[in-house]
Design a protein around this nucleic acid. Structure first.
Lengths: 247, 247
DNA sequence: TTGCACGGTTGACATGGATCAAACCCGTCT
DNA sequence: AGACGGGTTTGATCCATGTCAACCGTGCAA
């Protein structure tokens, strides 16, 4: 059966996806819900999409109708200016939500691209609003998630506004490490899913600067880098880089 | 009657404040509500606080229990790093909401300071959640407001990550102009409420750089600056500065 | 009225990161 | 196996913005 051009780029698998037995439920939307409440959430979240590396989950300008919970994989979001400049606004991993920016004016305001083969749960937003009018816990948790996104963005603004290159990269690595840990992965060893250029775009730096900072950290014994493979050797050392911001 | 030290710094006036006859209702939370729904919102928003110039509406770390709608005046929000660095994360004016960042972990994550004598409406958050479980329009509008904040933050990240000094300042001025216009003020002439240092902090620049950029714009006939008084003479010119980002 | 304090402006100079360019590494295709 | 291409590393140089310092303007207090 032929697929339309639009659908072709992401294959939709209508697999019954249950929050109730998802191991990410404590990181994700169902956090704090009772069994019975979770069952009601399950009714609404029943489509899972697979997105292959490099494909868009959504694009800026497309009508907004759903948010997405990442079940597995890794994404970036970015915004584009008319003159071609773009900036990565975030990297998202399992258990995190994508698409919250689209609520504001019924259209997505950024692009979401998979950086590795990924799976997301499709959450129709108006049905989520309906359900969260009935389940207070869900309502409150959703508000917390949105608020957390605002706080995170303030952190990035701080980083972009006041930190120098090496501080930014240290903050970035520590943040990744901490999020991997929360998902049960090694806090000290991981593969970067994004290029130096994407890291640079996120951190407001050029790719060469990112590369040099990696090399510098390696020379100082803080990390071991081998292309995309990172081993963090000295977490306190990285933290220290963030604190003494002169030289 | 003596006031406690905590209360002393902001004088609370328990004046009946009605959204229903507030001229900011179309910019603010009541947007889109029917008369009857607005009356229910009125029941919940019945305390107005006056905050004098320089005083804090709230501070980072304080327990969160309310959000605030600005009735009149002008605020800045800023975050502080342990090592003393701080950054202004936004400037807020009448009709805008303050405190959304506090939802995420029951504590405010930034400081909100009045830049001129101001008045805010006090909106107990749990009561707002209760009401928005009953009024779909309110619920949806509140979600839009939070989402808009996220989109705004992405814009600031873009600005901090990719723009040069003069582009940032042009973007800043155009944004202010546009928000003043939306509130019925002149789009071309206004007084800045913040210092050069605060502008710089927001834009990720030093105050001297901000000052030089103002002077440069003046030389080029784009604006007329006289200390805090700004007159915008050439809006297309400012827009153009933002677009050609090389030299 | 004078003087002080705070914010703003301007200049001279220093520097972190951008830019430009070459070479390298690694996986993939032929 | 060889060649190609995307991503990365490293070096040399440049420039926008930071830093430091002097001075100015305005409003408030004595």
């Amino acid at each position: 059966m032929p697929l339309s051009p639009v659908v072709k780029e992401i294959s939709i698998a209508v697999i019954k996806t249950a929050c109730s037995n998802c191991n990410l439920r404590e990181l994700c939307l169902p956090f704090g819900l009772s069994e019975e409440e979770m069952a009601r959430l399950d009714e609404l979240i029943n489509v899972r999409k697979r997105i292959k590396r490099g494909e868009h989950l959504y694009r800026a300008g497309q009508p907004f109708e759903s948010i997405y919970a990442i079940r597995s994989g890794f994404f970036k979001t970015d915004v584009l200016l008319e003159d071609g400049r773009d900036q990565v606004t975030g990297f998202q991993m399992a258990g995190e939500l994508l698409g919250l920016d689209g609520i504001s004016n019924e259209h997505h305001s950024c692009n979401a691209v998979a950086l590795e083969d990924s799976e997301v749960c499709h959450i129709p937003f108006s049905r989520l609003e309906n359900l969260s009018r009935e389940i207070q816990t869900l309502q409150h948790h959703f508000h917390k998630v949105m608020s957390r996104e605002i706080v995170r963005d303030h952190g990035v603004m701080m980083l972009l506004g006041t930190m120098r290159a090496e501080e930014r990269l240290a903050a970035f690595l520590l943040n990744l490490s901490q999020r991997f840990t929360a998902r049960g992965f090694s806090h000290a060893e991981f593969n970067l899913r994004m290029t130096r250029e994407e890291i640079g775009s996120y951190l407001g730096l050029k790719l060469e600067t990112v590369s040099r900072a990696f090399s510098r950290f390696q020379e100082e014994g803080l990390i071991a880098v081998q292309q995309k493979h990172i081993r963090i050797l000295n977490i306190p050392g990285l933290k220290q880089i963030m604190s003494h911001h002169n030289h």
